[in-house]
């Protein structure tokens, strides 16, 4: 059970998050309303007249003050109404819900790869500082910073899918149809997506472990004759959990951003590729809906990390 102090911290974190959430939604709203593009102009078809534009403005409420528009958008949002696609007339919420599973699959898959790969590399690098593994891990982290997601994805497709035919080159299998096939098909996109995450986690963990191993406390243990391995497992590992939690939000945010490119390369029918198509076609409500939805995910993950912190932080008591 959580103590009263912890509950208070948790409540305060949630309350602090509220204004940020309001600003997130407001920004994604005005992103589409301050720009030079006029949705009414697009809706009016190929040969717009003054009257038809005015009519559409009135119909959609674009002629109202921006704050009123925002309020009504939030009101509709709370009722699950994100508007309709200008392209296909499909409700935006349906479109998002149809495409979300494919996105979540590769994002979560990539997170798993990043955390497993990053933890192994980071700990191994710290254990033998300056050794071969350390140099490979640090070199990889440096290189990964300079690798474009989409190029890694293309290399993977070219070798593993086209040359060696190990994986399908494009497309996705719905998880509900065949979980094994779905995961198999999502492997290459997930690997491409995980690269920068592996690098981030490797770097953070390596630094955290080295800090522990260099602490006067551990140096004393070593002087007392405790083996390096025992120190690493008993004392180094305590820091691993905390370090991993701190990078979850950062890595998740990176994966959500990277999924736009990865889905495009692998032609995966997820929210990322839908966003790009909508952005190019100026399908405003779809762009707005997807940005809002994905940001909410990032926001929720960050909040969850904050809360987990509040629950685990020994200083709170």
């Amino acid at each position: 059970m959580l103590s009263r102090n912890r509950w208070r911290v948790v409540r305060r974190r949630i309350l602090q998050a509220m204004p940020t959430l309001a600003i997130v939604s407001f920004i994604s709203f005005i992103i589409l309303h301050i720009g030079p593009g006029d949705p009414a102009l697009l809706l009016a078809g190929e040969f717009p007249t003054e009257e038809s534009i005015a009519e559409i403005r009135a119909l959609y409420g674009f002629d109202r003050p921006i704050l009123v528009q925002y309020a009504s958008w939030v009101w509709q949002l709370l009722q699950g109404d994100l508007g309709r696609s200008l392209q296909s007339d499909e409700p935006v919420l349906d479109l998002i819900l149809n495409r979300l599973p494919a996105t979540l699959l590769i994002v979560c898959y990539a997170m798993v790869i990043a955390f497993v790969g990053g933890s192994v590399l980071g700990i191994a690098a710290a254990a033998r500082r300056g050794g071969a593994v350390d140099r490979i891990a640090t070199g990889f982290a440096t290189l990964a910073d300079a690798l474009p997601y989409f190029w890694v994805a293309m290399l993977l497709v070219s070798f593993l899918a086209l040359d060696w035919r190990l994986f399908p080159a494009t497309g996705a299998v719905p998880f509900s149809d065949d979980p094994i096939e779905a995961i198999w098909a999502a492997t290459l996109p997930a690997i491409a997506l995980s690269i920068s995450g592996i690098a981030q986690i490797t770097r953070q963990l390596r630094a955290a472990m080295i800090e522990v191993l260099d602490s006067p406390f551990v140096r004393t243990l070593r002087a007392k004759g405790l083996s390096s391995r025992a120190i690493l497992w008993k004392h180094g590992m305590k820091n691993v959990g905390v370090t991993l939690i701190t990078v979850v939000g950062l890595v998740f945010s990176g994966k959500i951003g990277g999924t736009l490119l990865t889905e495009t390369v692998f032609a995966i029918p997820g929210t990322g590729s839908a966003l790009i198509t909508a952005a190019i076609n100026k399908d405003y409500f779809v762009v707005q809906g997807i940005i809002m939805m994905l940001s909410l995910f990032v926001f929720a993950v960050n909040l969850a990390v904050d809360l987990l912190y509040a629950v685990l932080d020994p200083r709170v008591e």
């Binding site: 959500i256 951003g257 100026k282 994905l294």
Partner: peptide
């Protein structure tokens, strides 16, 4: 904080979509 909770590339795509390509 709010802007940082948008993944950078997502924000950039959104802004690029509004401004035009």
């Amino acid at each position: 904080d709010a802007l940082l909770s948008f993944p950078t590339i997502l924000l950039a795509v959104g802004i690029a979509a509004v401004l035009g390509t």
